[in-house]
Nucleic acid binder design. Structure first.
Lengths: 196, 196
DNA sequence: TATCTAATTAGATATATATTTAATTAGGTG
DNA sequence: CACCTAATTAAATATATATCTAATTAGATA
């Protein structure tokens, strides 16, 4: 699960009113006014909270005549609630498979990077792709915040498809994005380990 | 799990920085400066976040010489993360056992409440206790917020041990507490059902 | 005891968010 | 089409919180 999705989920659940709404929806679909009166709040407040719950995907709406009923998707709730328990595990599993020596790494780099330092193409094999992503991402400094523009500009110095590279960095946990700004993740949570 | 504990937990996890800290602690104990430099933040910021994680109980500290290492308690994390999935279920199970007729209810009330409306004693049998708790809690209005003083004052009109009654109302989900103010919960989430 | 290091506290600032009232929108139904 | 009801949006307010710098505390060790 993506880091920002996880934050969004826990922010959504981290509120007394929204937990009370979830408790009600667990008993079955409810409509806005009903929820408002049961919790002693005004309808706009419920709209506000329901919006946050809907954004996570665990609540959805179905219209019946003039009334909109809100439903709880318990499967999604369960999936998202347990994601935090598995945090880092995907990486850990991958690490086992994705250890390699410095020599192997150099070979892959030599195959995919020109003498001028340009990326010939994005490797399709996961292992090789990760080597390449890690190789180029080392440009960034730990703790420094980068605008999307800066990230794009840097990628363009070695490859034209900046959108793909940027997305892969985030997806593969080399970097993390927070409102369109980027930061390097510590190597410990990168999905690849190079034996020294 | 108590409602406010649940909110506290999800508020704690609902933050990018704290999730990143959890991801680090999952690999093993870390000390403050280490975390700060890995995440590109200053030590006071880490103190701030660690405090919130410690408050939930999922992180604890052990000193080694001059350095304090923070550990993740994965069992607690798992327990708290999954609590939201089970929300209302305890009540639902109880509901099955705790249905009763209006006549039964009246009998219990007659046995425990004096003609003057005073509570003779708090029943020790769960079923009877819940009847008594529900009987007296009906005094409150849905959606209205009560100060602790008001709640105490009302309880004293029928029973001396106001602290126990107040605590039971919250524990049994008849009311909920938020920074020392109290509100009635909707009957739907009460742990008892009276057949009409 | 003096000094070093790691951690915490205090205070300041900027941002986010929970709630309300008033106004508006969106679908039904006569 | 006119009207009704439920839901949403807008704007305002109050509260909470994430982060930093500067100052302080707490232990360890020489």
């Amino acid at each position: 699960m993506q880091l920002d999705k996880m934050v969004q989920f826990h922010k959504a659940v981290g509120d007394v009113t929204r937990i009370r709404i979830l408790a009600l929806l667990k008993k079955g679909p409810r409509h806005g006014q009903e929820i408002a009166s049961k919790l002693g709040l005004k309808p706009p407040t419920i709209t506000h909270h329901i919006a946050k719950l809907k954004d996570t995907g665990m609540v959805y709406a179905r219209r019946e005549k003039n009334t909109i009923y809100f439903h709880l998707d318990e499967k999604k709730l369960e999936y998202m609630a347990t994601a935090i328990i598995r945090i880092g595990e995907e990486n850990f599993v991958k690490n086992q498979e994705l250890e390699m020596t410095e020599a192997e790494k150099q070979k892959i780099i030599k195959n995919f990077v020109t003498k001028e330092g340009k990326l010939k193409q994005i490797p399709s094999q996961l292992k090789k792709k990760l080597v390449i992503l890690s190789y180029f991402v080392e440009h960034f400094e730990l703790g420094k915040v980068y605008e999307e523009k800066e990230v794009n500009a840097y990628i363009k110095t070695f490859h034209e498809d900046f959108a793909t590279i940027r997305r892969e960095w985030v997806m593969q946990q080399f970097m993390f994005r927070e409102n369109n700004r980027y930061q390097l993740n510590p190597k410990e949570i990168w999905p690849i380990v190079i034996e020294k």
